[in-house]
Structures are given as C-alpha cells and as structure tokens.
Design a protein around this nucleic acid. Structure first.
Lengths: 212, 212
DNA sequence: ACCTGAACACCGTTCAAGT
DNA sequence: ACCTGAACACCGTTCAAGT
C-alpha cells in the first residue's frame, strides 16, 4: 500500500529540544483539543503531552497537577463563552430588551451544545469543589456582565423595574444556566432548532416579573 | 495498644462464598457510600468490590461497566431527592404558594449541599452524555411532579395564571436547578444559612410573572 | 532551568479457570 | 450461574538523572 497524502497529522515541526517553546500554552491547547475531539474521558495529561511531543512528566514543570491543567482549559473556555454572549448582543441595540436577553441566553446554551465536554468541565463538579481555582469562580462574572447592558437599557427606558442590575442579571443567568445544564444532560428534551425559542418561553414569565 | 471498641467498621459477617447475597445491591450501596465519604474521584469499581469483600471482576456479572454502576447509584439518588422535595411540602397545605415552592426548592438545594458528590454524579456531564440510561433522564420528572401540587392549588385559588402546570413546574425547576448547580460550584456565594432565603429572592420575580 | 526515563501505585476491562 | 486469578493497557504522580 503506497503512502497517500496522509491528510491527518500534518508533520508538525517537532524539534528535538522543546527548550524554548511555550510549553504551558501548548499543553493547554492540546488539552482543549482533546476535550473537543474525544470528550471528557479522553482528556489525559499523558495524551496531551504526547500530542505536543513531550514527555508527560514535563507537564509538572508548568502545572501542579492535572486539575491545574483542567482549570487553565476552563478559564479559556469562560473567556470564549463571555465573548459569544457579548457578540450576541452586538449591533442589536434597537431590539427590545426581552429579545436581546433571549439572544444572549441562547448564545450561552449554544456554546454548551457546541462544546459539551468543555462546558461540562467548566461547570461540572470535579474542577473546583475545594475552591482551589478562584479565577474559575470569577470567570462567570464576565457572562453576567454581558446581561447587564440590556438590563440597564430596559431600566432607562422604563420597561424594567428599577432594581439591582446585578441581582436581575444573576437571576437571569441562573435560569439560563439551569436550562443549558438540563438540556445538555437530556433532562429537558428540545429539538436543537427550537432551543432558543424554548428559552424565550422560559424567560417570559421571569421578564414579566421583572417589568413594571 | 489494646483493642478498644472499634466503633467503625463493625465486623461485617463476611462469608467466604457470596453465592447467595444480593451482590448487585451490595455493590450499588458500597458505591453510594464511597461517593459520600470520599467524593467523586474516590468512587472506584475496584474499591466498591473491596468494601463488599468480593473480587472486582465479579461486578461485571451485574453491571455492564462502571458507568452502569454509576447510573444505578444516580437513580437511587433521584428517588431520594424526590422524596425530600415531597417531604418539604408535607403538612404545609395552608402556607401560601410562594412559600411552599420556596421550601420545595430549598429541599432541592439542601440535598445538593448535603450530598455534593452524589448530586454531581446525578447532574454531571459524565453519566449520560450518550443517552444510555433513559431511567436517569426520566428520574428528574419525580422532582418536577413535586412542584405541581402547589401550582395546582395556586391556580385553583386564582393567584396563579391559568397555564400549563407542567410548563410552570419545569420553569421553576430550571431556576432551582441552576441555583443549586451554581451554589455548589461556588459560582454564586451565599452563606449556608441564607441559601433558602436567597432562593426566595430569585423566585420572587418569576412567581410575580406567573401570577395573574 | 527545563526536560527525560524509569518507577510506583493505582485504574477499568477481559477471560480462562474454578466451584 | 456466579465468582476468582491473572493479565492487559492504560492512568496520575514522583524523582533521580541528563542537558
């Protein structure tokens, strides 16, 4: 069998000494890729090192243990999630508040659906049960922030009750997160095409309660 | 050192042949205990077999693999959770609807706090990503059911809008679950003594929106 | 300073063999 | 039918040793 093009594994320039590369970032990126391609159980410290072409023990020079590597992956994930939420509200200044909030929430759920293993890591139980990675805890705040712009506009326009923006944002995010978690674990069954629509149904009574 | 009372590990009657015992149940119970005592990473198929006093390979006669054992543990957990939710609404028929719903929701969150590893298994990403255990998916319905009694009473009394009871219950559970998940993973910081109180704050606008 | 090689104590899973 | 023993292919973590 003659060797065809070998589309996969495109002949990485594998130096013999990795002495200068940014191994920390390389390991984190490899771990992120593993998570996306093979799911939560496929993310292995040894396999990430293998992908980078380095001895697995070298990872311990840059991460205290496997969980520290996972935390780094999760942090990056939170940044990406917040970006998607902000993007969902870009250029929609004229849409009404309910619609804007629904779009931001849909971005949250769609992120979870597009990257289920990453989302599972970010929000799952294993990562931070002992509070070792405060950065991960605070990362969600960026997402809460994304909800605040439409809430502020809504209060200014007089359609929303005057109340703590942060409180309103947290209430909304709690519902959105619960929805994402339940959809992802198949506790709520919604057709993929209807995910945003059903979120609107869930948000409706809450927004009515937040209105004046 | 003379042997004192040895309060722990009360000399289980360990037969040499396990041929008759209900090994399936014994393994499931041991796994549940491991989860409670050592957390998610401490739950090992081999260790569960060790606790029961049986060769670990024997587990494969009763469970297809480790995940099947985890699913059995999770199912039992859902039954316990639903029981707590129903108990929280027992003998409170005269309390108002909002208060009853808040109590049921608090039972949900307190269960999660009391059994964090079990709750993490039940709701976490690892268990059922491929839909292999439909029983686990449906188990949450028992919890949703517990919310329906107060909702029915509220609609009958005319304080709640006439609408799908199931829809209202699912909306409430989504918010409650999101709250439990975020509290458990330290994304929301609430003092333990204030957990039920803050749930009330979260539920308030939603219930206002569900009211006529 | 950064990485390798080898070792340690574990896993989940499989399978022939025992009773 | 149900369980044991031994093996296999993996892990995460540690540590002396190399450059």
């Amino acid at each position: 069998m003659p060797t065809p093009s070998r589309a996969k594994r495109p002949a990485r320039p594998r130096r013999k000494t990795y002495h200068h590369g940014d191994l920390k970032r390389a390991l984190r990126d490899a771990a992120t890729r593993l998570l996306a391609e093979r799911g939560g159980d496929g993310l292995t410290l040894r396999e990430a090192a293998r992908l980078v072409g380095v001895n697995h023990a070298a990872a311990y020079r840059h991460f205290a243990d496997k969980r520290a590597l996972l935390a780094a992956v999760a942090e990056e994930g939170y940044a990406a999630l917040a970006r998607r939420m902000r993007d969902a509200d870009a250029g929609t200044a004229r849409a009404d508040v309910a619609e804007r909030l629904r779009r931001i929430g849909t971005a949250y759920v769609e992120f979870a659906r597009a990257e289920p293993a990453l989302f599972g890591l970010m929000t799952g139980p294993r990562l931070n049960e002992d509070g070792r990675f405060p950065a991960v805890e605070q990362a969600l705040q960026q997402g809460v922030d994304a909800l605040e712009a439409p809430l502020r506009d809504g209060q200014a326009a007089g359609v929303l009750r005057a109340a703590s923006i942060e409180g309103q944002a947290l209430t909304l995010l709690t519902l959105i997160h619960g929805y994402a978690a339940l959809v992802l674990t198949r506790r709520i069954h919604v057709k993929p095409a209807r995910i945003g629509e059903y979120l609107g149904t869930l948000l409706e009574p809450l927004l009515r309660g937040l209105s004046r």
